[in-house]
Design a protein around this nucleic acid. Structure first.
Lengths: 329, 329
DNA sequence: TATGAAAATGTAAACGATTTCATTTTAGAT
DNA sequence: ATCTAAAATGAAATCGTTTACATTTTCATA
């Protein structure tokens, strides 16, 4: 495998000149440039990123931290990140943390060891303290979920408002007994979405009923099924349920169907995220569309700015309520 | 940010000694080892992968080539790859090719430029010629889909047999008019699965009916919907359909439901892959389970062997037919 | 033709580790 | 106390780039 020295020798110039050709600098005469390019071709030379990266003290790699790859919610975001990254000559390392601090730390080590130039964190369970510390020395952006007030830039939507609108939609089509399928309130988004739920009810003069609020451990399909099982057992059964993730909602849907009830006639369902599958279910799912692709591109741009040493501000993007069959009474 | 020189100075030893401590070599006296470890702690030193990688001529990164991140089929495989990779101190770069040779080439360049030590290709649309050429100089393994006879090791299942069994199951529960929802036969797995379909029919003395064979451009949900629309319009409508991917099958399911017909009473459906969502649909989907996680770990182990310069043989793993509601007559 | 600024090229020092080979230290045997 | 082999350590080369600085070449102008 040829290196820059051999190319230089073969072309009869210095390595500096070869490097200049490689990097498209204009201080090379077209004659020597030609010679060099010929040598490159003849030797089948490919510049090594290893040497370049060391010299430039960069890895051209950014980390994406997600709790699990199994939730399609992240896929669209990742695509957004990737496209921006690629176009800026960065590559992305996808890191599944399983919300495990141990695994998380392995990935944090990658940036400490210069294997990565920055991090986009999408893990709601991330250790905020560690993240904060890390952010003092390295470029970090939070995406979708964020720790507030720790000074790390984030991109997200207005979760309270989104939740408010979703529930308001249910109220407007006549529901009054509305269950909330939420996750652990240690997550900021869970608290915010609950607040939106409360505000909507309050606004319609409906009293909060704690029996209608269910907490699940994760955002997965099975959690939705289990929670719905409990809901269906309630003496005063609600007529609608708002789930804070599509996967939960799809689990709920399945359980309702299995119980012989009809969606939306007997029970309306609203999800959150607008993952691809929310359109594949029967009936299709009403859901809050997060601008996932945009979130990804935005986060990536912010990170690259940060890596370049610039100051960046947090961003709050718009969402959209998508009404489909599961509430189309 | 401290480097190894400063640690050496601070500990009053040479860089060689520090390096030895770092790499856990046993030729360091416990006394100096202690000194060095102290210095490392005091200076908050983290060894740079950039320097190490250059010196070792390796990147400790492997590439995974997938056509699209949107098909959950790949997720489980990726998990398998990742776990093995991590435990061998490799990191994975997930590369979505969109089956676009242009994008593909960008990723191939990463290994040419030493940014990656090897490739696991899962893209059926990969340019076999390029791959073959690349495999002469770099470590490459094919996973799930493979170009036969090009000398690149692969891990896969027996697609012909798997398809045969799926169709045989439909025959056994009484179906005789069975449609095949296939993809482009330029893909090896498409040809193989069609052969299995034919063999099963032949064995039951049923004549192949080309009107019952449908080709889709991709393996996505929408393709399944569209194909099913055509199937439902047939004058002599089949009573069962075998789709070569779960996403296709789920699209078919949705379309059948929408048309007012019942699965499995009016139309039985069998998918392929056993993605998570195949269990979330209504009804749940009968499907061929590929050992995705195992495929991932196997491919990763093979790749690492290959990177280390060893010869590796191709592997064919077992599959399993999972019978669920969509054929439970 | 001589001059000097601008353009082109080269030299050599980084970047931060690992490792070979040489040298020093240690410790056990006499 | 002396010797010797083994253990511990260090000096310096190396991996493959980029780039600051020094030097040479070019060429329009006087």
């Amino acid at each position: 495998m040829a290196n820059i020295q051999q190319v230089a020798k073969h072309a009869g110039v210095s390595v500096a000149t070869v490097s200049r050709v490689l990097n498209g600098q204009n201080t090379v005469s077209s004659k020597t440039k030609l010679k060099v390019e010929e040598a490159i071709k003849e030797l089948n030379y490919e510049p090594s990123m290893l040497g370049r990266n060391l010299r430039n003290s960069e890895s051209r790699i950014v980390l994406i931290l997600i709790p699990t790859i199994s939730n399609p919610f992240y896929l669209e975001i990742i695509k957004g990140i990737e496209n921006v990254a690629i176009s800026h000559n960065y590559n992305i390392l996808l890191c599944e943390t399983d919300s495990d601090p141990e695994k998380e730390n392995i990935y944090f080590d990658l940036v400490r060891k210069k294997m990565a130039d920055g991090i986009i964190s999408m893990d709601p369970a991330v250790n905020v303290e560690t993240l904060k510390q890390l952010a003092e020395k390295y470029a970090i952006i939070q995406c979708s979920e964020y720790g507030g007030g720790i000074g790390i830039p984030y991109v997200t939507i207005d979760n309270e408002e989104a939740s408010y609108r979703a529930v308001k939609h249910l109220l407007q089509i006549g529901h009054t007994k509305i269950a909330l399928m939420n996750t652990d309130e240690k997550f900021l988004y869970a608290r915010e979405r609950k607040m939106g739920y409360e505000r909507a009810l309050r606004e319609h003069g409906i009293e909060m009923n704690n029996n209608y609020i269910f907490y699940t451990k994760d955002l997965g399909f099975e959690n939705g099924q289990q929670a719905m099982k409990k809901i269906l057992k309630l003496k005063e059964r609600p007529t609608a349920v708002f789930a804070v993730s599509d996967l939960l909602a799809i689990g709920a849907l399945k359980e309702i169907n299995a119980s012989g009830l009809n969606v939306p006639r007997d029970m309306a369902v609203v999800g959150f995220d607008k993952i691809d599958f929310s359109n594949m279910t029967n009936p299709t799912l009403t859901t809050v569309a997060q601008p996932m692709y945009k979130m990804g591109t935005t986060a990536a741009k912010m990170l690259i700015e940060k890596i370049q040493g610039n100051k960046v501000d947090s961003v709050i993007l718009d969402f959209e309520l998508v009404i489909r069959e599961s509430t189309a009474g």
